[in-house]
Design a binder for these strands. Structure first.
Length: 431
RNA sequence: GUGGGUGUAGCUCAGUUGGUUAGAGCGCUAGGUUGUGGCCCUUGAGGCCGUGGGUUCGAGUCCCAUCACCCACCCCA
């Protein structure tokens, strides 16, 4: 009678109610902390013109060159499911002339991103990020502010065991100078590196720093690092960022070898890693993008931001914080006899009407089974409708945590709800 | 795109050198308590042993193929 089961697409997954609770907690923390720093919320579409990403992220990046979900719509336009959020926010900033409001444009966002990579621990093809962007200033204190916000969200979620790596990759000119020096350093001994590194040397030389081979690491020991090649202005900027971070009491580790994968980054770049994760241990990453607005057709405007991966944040959260333990204030209505069903339904509506969460049995099960269900429902109380008490117009309220019970007159509940019709029904002795 | 691993109940997993009705724990159902959850005891339901082919008297077990998932590489959140 049924065909083959349809399953979720490779690399995607359902966020089931238990996990959704953790989601809501994270997003409420992000929302609250963003509000503390006076960031508003923005919600761009999840698909955009393909060109936004090819121009923004860069044709040569892995994300654009081989990981995008790109398709044509019926108007033969090339569209792409967003692989990241910053490009969309910048597009929106330009499109609505948000810079004309004066001041710095500060926003946060959250939602699904799409990259066609091979899934593994902490990596999905549809994954979720929240991100924070500040467009319109190159002031170093803004760098420190947004890094602080990044850090604070994680501490608020109880995540420790984190490592904040920081670097400045300068502006494109200094990167070119470094690239040259790096090549000159490596070239004479290129043959001694592993196969992967030899390949990286031609595609993305700085990635060689990430190689896990000990031999390669040894040979890289004295290699030129980008931080030594940045301009005096970039250096000055970076030093100021460090000062502000210290003022904010934020501990960081300068990682002179850190590079970032998206082409638009300039100057300050950072990454936060968790030791609780597997191979994909980076839970957030960000940096300045002082040339991006201009690249996407706007006035030259500096910007900075970061994105964090929800799935990885959850993996990094301590187990205790992940599972909610307490009961939610509310009432599960259990009945001793089917003839109380109508009353139970009315009561549930009245309780919900006055803001008390209420639930009841829909399967016609025994009182014992209903009590069991009440226990599992996670609600704090059961209200039992049984013969003796109902004769007096009362129900039994049982606290599911300490098992204490008392009687309550149903009319009192109906009075609170403000509807007299229910109370009348009781007085007529329907129960 | 490249490697390695794993597919048996809703979940986590056992399953002997191929042998007859495929098991456990947890979860779920009903009862022990004719008016009350958690602990305990009993009971019941639930499996094309991923799929297709092959070897064999006989396959969850061996062989081939295929699909799916997981982990890692690459790269990234």
């Amino acid at each position: 009678m049924s065909g083959e089961k349809i399953k979720a697409i490779y690399g995607t997954k359902d966020i089931l109610p238990d996990e959704a609770v953790i989601w809501q907690r994270i997003l409420s923390v992000v929302s609250r902390m963003a509000s503390n720093y006076n960031y508003g919320f923005i919600n761009p579409p999840i698909f955009e013109a393909t060109e936004l990403f090819t121009r923004g992220i860069g044709e040569s990046s892995d994300v654009v060159s081989k990981e995008m979900y790109t398709f044509r719509d019926k108007g033969d336009r090339s569209l792409t499911l967003r692989p990241e959020g910053t490009a969309s926010v910048v597009r929106s900033y330009i499109e609505h002339s948000l810079g004309a409001r004066g001041g710095v444009f500060k926003v946060w966002y959250a939602g699904p991103m799409f990259r066609q990579e091979r899934p593994q621990a902490g990596r999905y093809r549809q994954f979720y990020q929240f991100g924070i962007e500040a467009i319109g200033s190159s002031d170093p204190s803004l760098d420190a502010e947004i890094i602080s916000l990044n850090r604070s969200i994680f501490s608020e979620l109880g995540i420790d065991d984190l490592e904040l790596s920081l670097n400045s990759i300068g502006m494109p000119g200094s990167r070119e100078a470094h690239r040259q020096a790096f090549s000159d350093f490596i070239n004479p001994m290129l043959g001694e590196f592993c196969g992967d590194c030899q390949r990286r040397f031609s595609t993305n030389p700085l990635r060689m720093f990430d190689c896990k081979e000990a031999g390669c690491q040894d040979r890289l020991a004295g290699a030129p690092v980008i931080l030594d090649y940045i301009s005096a202005e970039d250096r000055e900027h970076f030093d100021r960022v460090l000062e502000f971070l210290e003022l904010a009491g934020i501990t960081y580790k300068i990682d002179k070898r850190m590079v970032r994968g998206l082409d638009y980054y300039t100057r300050t770049a950072w990454e936060i890693k968790s030791k609780r994760l597997g191979s994909q241990d980076s839970i957030s990453g960000g940096g300045r993008y002082d040339l991006l607005v201009e690249q996407l057709g706007g006035q030259p405007t500096p910007g900075i931001g970061f994105a964090a991966g929800m799935e990885r944040v959850i993996l990094a959260m301590p187990d205790g914080a992940a599972g909610g333990s307490g009961r939610k204030t509310g009432v599960y209505i259990a009945i001793r006899h089917e003839r109380f069903k109508t009353e139970a339904f009315k009561l549930s509506q009245a309780l919900r009407g006055i803001g008390v969460p209420a639930d009841l049995d829909y399967l016609g099960r025994s009182l014992k089974a209903q009590m069991k269900q009440a226990d599992r429902s996670g609600l704090s109380h059961t209200m039992i409708l049984a013969e003796d008490e109902m004769d007096r117009g009362a129900g039994i309220v049982r606290n599911l945590e300490n098992s204490k019970q008392f009687e309550i007159l149903l009319v009192d509940i109906y009075k609170m709800s403000g509807g007299h019709q229910f109370g009348e029904a009781i007085e007529k002795g329907e129960g």
